[in-house]
């Protein structure tokens, strides 16, 4: 079986839809947060696929002549910061889960039907 030439783009779409499916079907808030990270990782695949160049080197010119064909450094910089920032945001969401469980006694998103100040 030969893969279509643009298959990384479609892998990104597949990961995105898997993550969204996980969020929709979620029965547990922690599961929901992890599904969100799956959604987010699809953007990494897409960004890196866009910047990839067949036969290109890593855009690090330590011991590499400038002028050599390299992959796009900009998309790599975009996702580099996000990997770390995402982790702290996940920590924030999980802290919210802890508090939601403490206040309502449930971790199922379906049972969270109240908003209290």
């Amino acid at each position: 079986m030969t893969l279509p030439a643009d298959y990384p783009y479609f892998i990104a779409a597949w990961i995105l839809l898997c993550g969204l499916y996980g969020i929709v079907r979620s029965r547990h808030l922690v599961h929901m947060v992890i599904s969100l990270t799956v959604v987010q990782s699809s953007t990494y695949v897409l960004l890196l696929a866009i910047g990839f160049r067949q036969g290109g080197y890593a855009p690090v010119f330590a011991g590499l002549h400038t002028g050599v064909k390299v992959v796009d450094p900009i998309v790599q910089a975009l996702m580099l910061t996000d990997v770390v920032v995402e982790t702290t945001v996940v920590a924030l969401l999980l802290a919210m889960v802890v508090k939601a469980h403490e206040k309502s006694g449930t971790t199922s998103p379906d049972d969270l039907r109240f908003l209290r100040g």
Binding site: D6, Y7, G51, R53, G56, P59, V70, V71, D72, I74
Partner: peptide
């Protein structure tokens, strides 16, 4: 197409 990055910004930065 995948693997055929055209630039120009990434190339400009790399240069």
């Amino acid at each position: 197409a995948w693997g055929q990055y055209r630039g120009p910004y990434g190339d400009a930065i790399a240069r």
